[in-house]
Design a protein around this nucleic acid. Sequence first.
DNA 1: TTGACTGGTAAGATTTTTCTTACGTATATT
DNA 2: AATATACGTAAGAAAAATCTTACCAGTCAA
Lengths: 88, 88
Amino acid sequence: MLDLLVEADRSVNALAEDFQMSRPAVSQHLKILLDAGLVSEQRQGRERHYHLVPGCFGPVRDWIAQYERFWDDRLQRLQQHLLKDEQP
Amino acid sequence: MLDLLVEADRSVNALAEDFQMSRPAVSQHLKILLDAGLVSEQRQGRERHYHLVPGCFGPVRDWIAQYERFWDDRLQRLQQHLLKDEQP
DNA sequence: TTGACTGGTAAGATTTTTCTTACGTATATT
DNA sequence: AATATACGTAAGAAAAATCTTACCAGTCAA
């Protein structure tokens, strides 16, 4: 769904066409994405267009970045440790 | 689990102490993380030490980066569009 | 206003995930 | 050798997720 929405905004029926599951199932998925802040809703007449929220993956990226900082720190400590051994 | 393992390598029992679930449940989680390549195993006697694989989130980061490229492109196109209107 | 279209929600069935207990194997300790 | 420790795996129970059908409300078009 996210892959489809990144290309263009879509209505629920338009999204449902690309999946085997029923329309209500798609609605339920969208509700979850909406609650998670990954997607936003814009009502146009009887249709509701969903679109991907720009930068919505920020929190995930930040979470991953924490780990990468840890690894960087470790590597740095290792390098310093090795340098000390080389010139006593 | 990942949060614990990023600090230091741990044996299964050491990990299980920090959770309410049983040790076998922890083992099952570790198997999944192992299969996913997020974690690696090193046997030391009868213990097995697990540690976080450095850079294991690369694929996730790449996946997210795809979206961010899309957003960048859109923004760029929008900027160019606006510039055209300013100087006719 | 009536009928068609869009889509959300509830209820319940189905599927999947996740847990626990029981047990087997390998390594260590005595 | 006998016992204890660390850990994986199988089987089945329990919990959570995901789907479908049925139904309701809002919007549009005749």
